[in-house]
Amino acid sequence: MMIEESQTAAMASHPFLSGLDADSLRLLARCAANLRFPAGAVICRQGEEATHFYLIQHGRVALDLYESRHGSHTIQTLEAGEVLGWSWLVEPYRWQFDARAVELVRAISLDAACLREACDASPVLGYTIVKRLTRVMAQRLTATRLQLMDLYGTRT
């Protein structure tokens, strides 16, 4: 019971889940586990099944895109307070990139199947999660567009 409460409290303190009601947090806590990844650890690989959704609590995660001729390119890093992955929500549930711990990473891991079940069981929770994830995706899309512009290429 104590462990469940502390897990719920940890989840409530993450920006992605902040403001969620206690019932929703308890529902999500059943899918949650606390994980640590040492520096250099691979968290997920492009093409593999997206079995988890991560709430990063500490450390830095690099998202790498692998291309056979040129190897891996880091396209973005994620830090404490951010989330890793939306592939768990979008069929066919496959990671679109590699994720690697640049330094020690602590994260709350949510089991993807369990999370989808929770969202199906509570459409209000499901809609909340989808709305929040969509905001994250929109921010990252905007950031990616800015990166593509090569902003710093011509200013004198």
Partner: peptide
């Protein structure tokens, strides 16, 4: 904006 193998800082 562009990471590299020797960069351990933020990318974005």
């Amino acid at each position: 904006d562009r990471g590299s193998a020797d960069w351990r800082g933020s990318v974005g």
